[in-house]
């Protein structure tokens, strides 16, 4: 834990390339705290009276509680835009198929997209190892107790990955449909993956995540015959929360529907798509 401010998450976060020993990319603790402050009211007191007593007062702050993250996210966004790099923040519950989808995408499209990956997990580098096996650059971020990536972690991930101008960076966020929705990373687009085995009421249960999405992927379509999952009902719930998100149904393992995902990847550098376009994408 940072003894200056008491923040714990970042001290536990580890960024590693899997090539060098862990710890070589440890960051400098980035934030600055006030070095004391001026006594605001230099009124007189008797001799020998040295005091640092302040009078009770209310200090107005009126700032967003996510202001610091939002500022860092805006910096990331500018940095990415300046280099023509597209960063896609992929989010889901654990096990929805993010890594499977990324591995397949990288195998089929990785070279053309010049793609790299930033893997966020609480522990282990198992997912990063799966990506590395396809031969694309990957950086592992272990968040420890942290349940989401934040803009500062992405900054550090990008520093370590060092993506080329014009490339695509896939960010696999920590498996969690709650908090990653609140932490803007400065990504180009947010991709939410839900698998058919999770039930079609996910949008209703996690409205913030589905509201923030630019693309919703329903994965494991190969299992649709075996589970109760109403694709139209899922889309209907998403539309109640989000009128602009694209919607795709696919299977990362059989490859069914992947063409729609690859089309989206080819066009996603322009984010302002129309609703009509997105509706025609639906299965």
């Amino acid at each position: 834990m940072c003894t200056t401010c008491g923040c714990g998450d970042e001290a536990n976060t580890r960024v590693s390339t899997l090539q060098q020993p862990e710890g070589m990319l440890e960051h400098e603790h980035p934030h600055v705290h006030a070095e004391g402050h001026d006594h605001p009211h230099p009124h007189g007191h008797g001799p020998g009276h040295e005091h640092t007593v302040h009078h009770p007062e209310t200090i107005t702050l009126e700032q967003n509680l996510l202001a610091k993250n939002d500022l860092l996210a805006a910096r990331n966004r500018g940095w990415l835009a300046g280099r023509g790099i597209r960063a896609l923040n992929v989010m889901s519950s654990p096990g929805a198929g993010k890594t499977t989808l990324l591995v397949r995408t990288l195998a089929e499209l990785g070279a053309r997209l010049n793609a790299g990956v930033i893997e966020g997990d609480q522990e282990t580098s198992l997912d990063a190892d799966r990506i590395r096996a396809v031969g694309r650059p990957v950086i592992q971020i272990n968040t420890g107790a942290g349940c989401h990536l934040d803009a500062d972690m992405l900054r550090r991930g990008l520093d370590a990955l060092d993506p080329q101008t014009g490339s695509t960076v896939f960010i696999e966020n920590v498996g969690n449909l709650v908090c990653p929705a609140l932490f803007d990373l400065g990504e180009t687009a947010k991709v939410v993956v839900v698998s058919v085995t999770e039930g079609d009421d996910k949008p209703q249960k996690y409205p913030h995540m589905f509201r923030a999405a630019d693309l919703v992927i329903v994965n494991k379509a190969d299992l649709l015959p075996y589970v109760e999952f109403d694709v139209d009902e899922c889309l209907r719930q998403i539309r109640q929360l989000n009128s602009h998100a694209h919607f795709l149904v696919l299977s990362a393992t059989t490859g069914e529907g992947l063409a729609g995902w690859y089309d989206w990847l080819d066009n996603a550098s322009t984010r302002s798509d129309t609703l009509t376009e997105s509706l025609t994408d639906a299965h």
Binding site: G6, H33, A34, H148
Partner: peptide, 29 residues
């Protein structure tokens, strides 16, 4: 639990303004 990181950010933001001064109350919306 994102509330933990948000509250860590809050403590940071307050200390940046108030330094060593004891804080009696924090008002949020």
């Amino acid at each position: 639990m994102h509330e933990l990181s948000i509250m860590q950010g809050l403590v940071d933001a307050v200390l940046d303004r108030t330094g060593e001064r004891p804080v009696a109350a924090v008002n949020l919306r």
